[in-house]
């Protein structure tokens, strides 16, 4: 197996505040990896470091065997990373169909037609403004937008945030399907139980440092750790 993503000793700052203190993480080909942690642990910052939206000051980010630390975000994306950002970041003043025309289409199984087949609801709402969609529809749109790049690695930052349980299950089924079709997935969640249903392996971040890495099943069985993670996920 070869790593699709390898983060090594990453230090990231927002201005002068030091957020990530030497974070390392690996996603092997075909794996679904969960990145867990409480509110403010640094999960989103880790994703932003990978995408180079907040480029790390030290450490390295390797994607598909290439060092892409601090490369332009668009180069990272077209190298094969589909990014579903926290809060979805839909273009609210543009229609669903226009939202889907933003990413470049990279050839592969996913194109505008096939993502409409995957999410028929988006096809029905293709003329609606992104800002008018429900949270679940926005999540689908954000996933569809990422799939258009035909990524080898899909990164999702809290896809369950603010969604009704039925919708969450649907989103999780979609993620499971992507894994089955051979995509590697990095799933960021505050809701540990949910992410561990799907994950092969898991990492736990706390205050910008990795405090656990290992089997998803082992983590699930670790009552103390799960409780400390669950405490916030229900509050959130």
């Amino acid at each position: 197996m070869s790593a699709v993503l390898e983060i090594d000793g990453v230090h990231t700052y927002y201005g002068k505040s030091h957020i990530l203190h030497g974070v390392s993480l690996k996603v092997e080909e075909g794996e679904l990896v969960a990145l867990l942690g409480r509110n403010g642990a640094g999960k989103t910052t880790t994703m932003r470091s990978v995408m180079s939206l907040t480029p790390p000051k030290a450490g390295s980010v390797k994607l598909f065997g290439r060092d892409l630390t601090r490369a332009s975000p668009h180069k990272i994306a077209v190298s094969g990373v589909g990014y579903v950002p926290e809060g979805r970041k839909i273009f609210g003043h543009m229609s669903v169909h226009e939202n889907l025309q933003v990413p470049p289409e990279i050839s592969g199984p996913w194109n505008i037609e096939t993502v409409y087949e995957l999410f028929p609801r988006l096809y029905e709402r293709r003329a609606s403004k992104g800002g008018r969609l429900s949270g679940g529809e926005q999540e689908m749109l954000a996933i569809a937008r990422a799939l258009l790049l035909n990524p080898k690695l899909l990164i999702l930052d809290e896809p369950s945030q603010g969604l009704a349980p039925v919708i969450v299950q649907e989103v999780m089924r979609t993620i499971a399907r992507m894994k089955k079709e051979g995509m590697s997935v990095l799933l960021v969640e505050q809701n540990a139980m949910l992410a561990l249903q799907l994950a092969d392996r898991a990492y736990v971040l706390a205050d910008g440092e990795m405090v656990y890495s290992g089997d998803a099943a082992t983590l699930k069985a670790d009552k103390a750790r799960m409780e400390s993670l669950a405490g916030v996920s229900h509050a959130a």
Partner: peptide, 21 residues
């Protein structure tokens, strides 16, 4: 469409693979 999207959120279009330069 990208210019309009970028007006609203340049960072996000770059993470979607659009060459903002």
């Amino acid at each position: 469409i990208r210019i309009r999207a970028g007006n609203a959120d340049l960072e996000t279009i770059s993470a979607m693979g659009v060459n903002i330069f």
